[in-house]
Design a protein around this nucleic acid. Structure first.
Lengths: 187, 187
DNA sequence: TTGCGGTGAGAACGATCGTTCTCTAGCGTT
DNA sequence: AACGCTAGAGAACGATCGTTCTCACCGCAA
């Protein structure tokens, strides 16, 4: 097992445990046991738990945002609908437990380590950008993107406590009403 | 200092620290130091940390829901608008850091102690009920309440990372669009 | 064969956690 | 004055945390 594979196994274990049980609730020894990577190597690749948490969030962000971006690209006729379809599938995955980034932020607080807070902020900035990109250009674009963001976050928060596609469907219906109204105002 | 006052001071300290820093990050000794209540009395009033956390969430739920309910009652002409005005004020409070219940749920996970999970679920059920009550009767009432809930949760989640009244204002505008559309469909 | 740098397994360390125990000081009753 | 009860202050306990250290073992250059 080379460093690359060890790194992957560590991040796999970290993501599974941190997301399911919370960050503080999972010790480094659990990561070692679940990944099969010796503690010494763990600390060579991630010099402290903080680095492992940051690595977990950064990799999850790349995968999450990349997957959403793919889904949007695959449906150029209705990118907004694609976002909520994608959310519905995500909410239905076994073990879904809300947004990993908001969970981490809620757990660590605003005074948490910068190496952890920064991926959280970057993740939300990327989501904001993506939502703006799928809206038609116009003076309301930024404002509408912010409103879409609220719908996405709201559906995710509601689904965190009651998993399933329903919150995504409801948010999609709300988004449709919102965009219809905006169209009316614009045209 | 009788038991009643000790209890209040303990819950005050617990709420301040747990909300600001997270539950696992705050030890019982910090609660003792901040409240001025001896450890022995603390454990007499709350036999374990779990009980203190449950007490914190339950009291916060009563205060939070009660305050929102008051604001709604005071504006019978526009109760939905009152909800988002109330949210805007909440988001602007110093130290605002999102929904205490979702933060606790995210931190403790679905496998957390029932004494903690139950107040979280009850809080969300109460909010759902309150939102349904302020909507005009009709076949869409339940569905609209769920959509309002998504807007409330979404605004709260967005404001958690960027405090201020803006997310509440945007959610209010979205709610207005939603209700206008629903009116059109109904009448 | 001898030495050596690096690795794995896991013990060890100091800190901190939730919780309990010890000891003492005060107070009301007789 | 002597007693028993309660409560405060804080030490103590066992567990667990993040992190480091020990030591035996390996592959490989001379």
């Amino acid at each position: 097992m080379d460093d690359e594979e060890a790194r992957t196994r560590l991040l796999d274990a970290a993501e599974a445990r941190f997301y399911a049980e919370g960050i503080q609730a999972v010790g480094m020894d659990r990561i070692r046991a679940e990944s099969g990577v010796p503690l010494k190597r763990l600390y060579k690749l991630f010099p402290a738990k903080e680095a492992l948490v940051a690595g977990y969030l950064e990799r999850r962000d790349r995968r999450w945002t990349g997957s959403l971006r793919e889904a949007v690209s695959a449906a150029p006729a209705d990118p907004v609908g694609a976002v909520f379809d994608w959310l519905a599938a995500w909410f239905s995955e076994p073990g879904f437990r809300g947004c990993a980034f908001l969970n981490a932020y809620g757990e660590l607080g605003a005074g948490g380590p910068a190496a952890v807070l920064e991926p959280v902020r970057r993740h939300k900035a990327e989501l904001r950008t993506l939502l703006a990109e799928i809206l038609p250009p116009g003076p309301d674009r930024g404002e509408l993107a912010e409103q879409l963001l609220i719908l996405v976050e709201g559906a995710t928060a509601v689904a965190a406590l009651a998993p399933g596609p329903a919150p995504a469907r409801r948010a999609a219906a709300t988004a449709a009403a919102l965009l219809r109204t905006a169209d009316g105002r614009a045209g």
